[in-house]
Design a protein around this nucleic acid. Sequence first.
RNA 1: GGUCCCGUGGUGCAGUUUGGAGUGCACGCCGGCCUGUCAAGCCGGAGGUCGCGGGUUCAAAUCCCGUCGGGACCGCCA
Length: 604
Amino acid sequence: MTDLLGLRTHRNGDLREGDVGTDVVLCGWVAKRRDHGGVAFIDLRDASGVVQVVIHDEAVAHPLRSEFCLRVTGTVTRRPEGNDNPNLATGTVEVEATEVEVLSDSAVLPFPIEEHEATQVSDEVRYKYRYLDLRRAESAAAIRLRSDVNRTARRVLHDEDFVEVETPTLTRSTPEGARDFVVPARLRPGSWYALPQSPQLFKQLLMVGGLERYFQIARCYRDEDFRADRQPEFTQLDIEMSFVTEDDVIALGERIVRELWALIGHEIDTPIPRMTYAEAMERFGSDKPDLRFGVELTECTELFAGTTFKVFQAPYVGAVVFPGGAGQTRKQLDAWQDWAKARGAKGLAYVLIGDDGELKGPVAKNLSDAEKDALPGHVGAEPGDAIFFAAATPRAARALLGAARGEIARQAGLIDESAWAFTWVVDAPLFEPTSETDDVAVGSGAWTAVHHAFTSPKPECIDTFDTDPGSAVAYAYDIVCNGNEIGGGSIRIHRRDVQERVFQVMGLGPEEAEEKFGFLLEAFRYGAPPHGGIAFGWDRICALLSGAPSIREVIAFPKTGGGFDPLTSAPAPITAQQRKEAGVDARPEQPAATKVEPTTPQPT
RNA sequence: GGUCCCGUGGUGCAGUUUGGAGUGCACGCCGGCCUGUCAAGCCGGAGGUCGCGGGUUCAAAUCCCGUCGGGACCGCCA
């Protein structure tokens, strides 16, 4: 490694007893100052750590303040007997200063950098002064871990002969599901670029281009509302391969994930188990089940097939057991009703099992004796447990029960926070009815793609997916960690005829498909190889690895929930001159609907 | 688009339920003292548009309405 020490001879955190007697020059920031009058101690921090500097000249030490940037000349000495600090890696030595140069002084800080105990600073202030926040060990560690994560992924992928390719970030708006960020095109007033929601189409074109193995740590943009784990711009590790099967992509994905978790000292058992989408929904009420705990759903439709209880006269009745939940107060049980209503349900029916085994609660008296006798055994509930029910369409009821399952686990303390539970969820449906999603972004048909429009049906439904879309299974796979979808991908459609049939199911006619995806369909005319890939949610993976509650912690300069950057104050108004130049206000010459654009031109 | 929580010296909080003088705590900051600390200690001091606007009231940090900002969640995010 090149010696890049520059203005200094050593890094602060590297000094040890073996360096005693060495004359050193150090650089760094004043982390802490302890001035005793005749002698003063400065904790000098750089990226490597902290070392104690001793200054015997009061006139030198006194003006120094927190976060002054210093260059210190001195000698490494053994600390006097009994003065070691076992909390510091450098705690047995100190640097006797002979000269202190103030490289840069510091204004009074807006918040404390050296934190000792619980003093939390609001995210907004931290991100406004992110450059100060990054001086804090915890923040810096998260950013450094992300760098390690990037390096590891690149190493693995280069090992496997992957080619790192950068794809455009000024591209064409292609309806993929989310709202696009758009950028006015100065040279073509009235026309707009879109920022990519993912490099999906480009990576498929790279496969047509014969690169065979592509990857990119790709920035993606989606103009949707934000959450703790969603930012308007985010990063994917994007991968695509030609001439591969689902098993090949999964095997590569497992190698990557294994090596990433090895960074934090966790060994993932491979192969990672797989379950089908249908199984995940039936057992866990989620397409991204958290497998750190049990509490599985039980279907009770049969059990209540002849019930007189109107609420349970539904296409699907399911239950989930809250172990020990019978002891909840009325207030807690009412809170569950509010919780369910917040999720769009009418409420959450429940039965409590007393210690004597008797079923209690408002629902119990609506059940027949036979139903009451069979219920505990059927759902696996014991005296002292509570049973929650949902009765509706399978889809809606399972979603509610799945959410309840997670909430039960949190409340009952069933989650082992140190555990890592991975699973692949495979065989997702290819289509879902638009009526259940209101998602009409792509096409106008009764069906829309669950994954995206380029996902291949599995071979067994290649002939039937357009005659029976509801039963078609996609060649898709998601990897789930502790209830988080950390990656997902699919084998793509490489046949133009299949692609056209998929578009047709989605109500996308040839003309419209041509207008929106013409360049891809055109490419597929020229010997497109079978291909597939996967994209990992890079921010989320980094957040999981660093134990951060939000992906903001692993983003160098994150935005707040309103998409606002508190540091630069972006977004900001532009001048009238900028508006004019950018062509923001240009009006299309014709209404867009009647204007069919030429198919192929796709400048890159 | 919806629900909930938060907004009080530079930072983090308490005070709001039950209206009564900008009251309190910790950290930080400034000055002084102090030669072995490491969350140094001791003494003294400065620092406030209680997010903003309106209303109720003799009186509002406190009650009401609106609004802005932050956070979490639902919708949304293939």
